[in-house]
Every structure is written in C-alpha cells, then in structure tokens.
C-alpha cells in the first residue's frame, strides 16, 4: 500500500438492512433492548422503524468492494469510530462509500507497520446520516 492510494473511494453501494439481520446482530452482541427486535417497541419509543445498532455499520464493509485491498488476511483492526447525524433504520436503503483517507508508515522494533485509515460515509437520499472511521494495520518484518 503506498500513499498514492490516499483519497481513493469505492463506488457507491446501496445497502439495506433487514429486521432479521438486526435481530441476529443484536443477539450476537447481547443487545437486549427490545427496540432492536420488535418494530412496535421501536415505534412506541419514537422511532420510524427498527434502528440499526450503532456499531453495526461495520458489517457494511462486507458488501463493499474495496479496490485497494485484495485480501484482509493479516489485517489488524486498531481503531473504530462511529458518528451519527441521524439514526439508521431497517428497511431503508443507504448509499455507502468508503474512502481511504490516510496511509501512515511506522517502523518499530525492526517491524514496518502500515496504518490504513478509512471512512465509510452513509447517506440516505443524498443526506449524510453517519460516518464510520476504521483503521487497519499490517505488519512486516524489515
């Protein structure tokens, strides 16, 4: 990975999460809030539909082709952030783009470490709803 890739973006991918996918994700992380599994509870709580759990957009990466990453083997996930301008909901289609925002090389203990900083932008009908920042590291012996 070299710095020339900085600023590269993926194509726009349309992603729609089903209530069943949210239920399975919520169960996997012991998220026991009923608004994530029962639409009527979500509506009762003031939401338009079942919300997407705040850490779930990491799953969106599985649906997005990243041209500058051929294989995630050997990648270590070092940092992850999520910021929301709007809540995300089941059954809504989001326009998603991943951008490589920075590549940082560090050498420590004769090992070359490359940090790849990404941001996933999540839009609905052109309006930004949330941003997820993801940093991966790879390590090579010098």
């Amino acid at each position: 990975m070299d710095a020339s890739f900085i600023g590269s973006t993926t194509e726009v991918h349309l992603i729609c999460i089903s209530p069943q996918e949210i239920k399975e994700y919520a169960e996997a992380i012991f998220l026991q809030n009923p608004i994530y599994v029962d639409r009527s509870k979500a509506v009762e709580a003031g939401f338009e539909d079942i919300p997407v759990p705040p850490t779930m957009p990491i799953v969106f990466w599985q649906s997005i082709h990243i041209p500058w990453i051929s294989d995630f083997d050997g990648f270590v996930h070092t940092n992850q952030s999520f910021q929301y301008d709007q809540c995300l909901f089941a059954n809504k289609t989001y326009e998603c783009v991943v951008e490589l925002t920075n590549v940082v090389e560090k050498i420590r203990h004769n090992k070359s470490m490359t940090f790849m900083e990404h941001k996933l932008l999540i839009y609905h009908q052109g309006e930004l709803c949330g941003t997820a920042f993801t940093t991966f590291m790879t390590v090579e012996e010098e």
Partner: peptide
Amino acid sequence: LTKVDSSF
C-alpha cells in the same frame, strides 16, 4: 448512542 470512538 450518537458517538463511539474506540481503540483496540
């Protein structure tokens, strides 16, 4: 939750 900022 409106913001999550984590280091592994």
